[in-house]
Design a binder for these strands. Structure first.
Length: 271
DNA sequence: CATCGGACCTGTTAGC
DNA sequence: TGCTAACAGGTCCGAT
């Protein structure tokens, strides 16, 4: 479910409920998700006050009034919601941060590709070390893509999904941005002109920005923390539309697996 | 070093 | 209707 807009939607939804709250205790219903939880998680978090929630790539960073920060990733199926304390526990509700006041933060993740770890501000976390620029920042632009792509043989779609190139562009938005920019997803990254990369960077920013404004893409069960769905799905032009016709030129869309991911594009609009 | 395939998991859906 | 196989928003890791 979560690409960058979904993670940002989650961050914004949680912020007003968590800011200034104190974590009274932590309920762990298993040993870990993708990786084991840190052994001292409960001791470190008990009594901590939440000072901010930041996002880096698809990671959420919960800042506390102590050296450690909470690092969260939603993986493919993670959902973070605030719920009243007496809310019944459902399957795959793996972690609760029990807050003062009426709510607790509940981490639900059926596929368990998510993670929850502790980060010290003074010790850069390995998961964050190699991340590329934020797509909505000034550092990320067509010149950056052009510069990094020279000599890259990889098809452009998997290449822009590499988090070292730019963070936060997953399978859905990669397909949509390439359609919007008129670029064939199979084209070698190193053979795309500076002009076309400028267009691609612009479209990535526009599409991610629009998706955030609408509260993310609703696929299957994505819900923002207040339980409301996102509204971007109806605006997808190629993702999930295999077998249908292009909304722009009416040509039949093509689909193929590229780098093990479903890929849909318009053979007429994308070259 | 760049690139690819496999791995981690469960739930849903398509196909027989 | 029931069973099975394929596939799903991500990304790390080891082999090539």
């Amino acid at each position: 479910m979560p690409e960058l807009p979904e993670v940002e939607t989650t961050r914004r939804g949680l912020l007003p409920h968590l800011l200034g709250r104190r974590i009274e205790s932590v309920v762990l219903r298993r040993d870990g998700l993708r990786w084991p939880f840190p052994g001292d998680l409960q001791q470190v978090l008990a009594g901590a006050r939440i000072e901010d929630i930041e996002r880096r790539a698809k990671y959420l960073l919960v800042r506390l009034d102590r050296p450690e920060q909470i690092l969260l990733h939603l993986g493919m199926s993670g959902v973070l919601r605030t719920v009243p304390h007496d809310t019944p526990v459902r399957a795959h509700d793996h972690v609760d941060l029990v807050l003062d006041g009426a709510l607790r933060l509940r981490f639900h993740d059926p596929r368990r590709f998510g993670c929850l770890d502790l980060v010290r501000a003074d010790q850069p976390h390995p998961l964050l070390a190699e991340l590329g620029p934020e797509p909505l920042s000034e550092t990320f632009n067509g010149d950056w893509l052009f510069g990094w792509s020279r000599d890259r043989q990889s098809p452009v779609k998997p290449w822009i999904m590499d988090q070292r190139v730019v963070v936060g562009v997953g399978n859905i938005y990669a397909a949509e941005a390439l359609f919007a920019a008129g670029i064939d997803p199979r084209r070698a990254a190193g053979k795309i002109s500076r002009e076309r990369y400028r267009r691609l960077a612009t479209e990535i920013k526009r599409i991610l920005g629009a998706a955030i404004e609408r509260g993310g893409t609703t696929l299957r069960d994505f819900l923002s923390p207040d339980g409301s769905p996102g509204y971007f799905e109806q605006e997808l032009l190629v993702y999930g539309r295999e077998g249908l016709r292009c909304r722009s030129c009416n040509a039949e869309l093509r689909d193929e697996r590229l780098g093990q991911r479903a890929t849909v594009w318009c053979p007429r609009c994308q070259r």
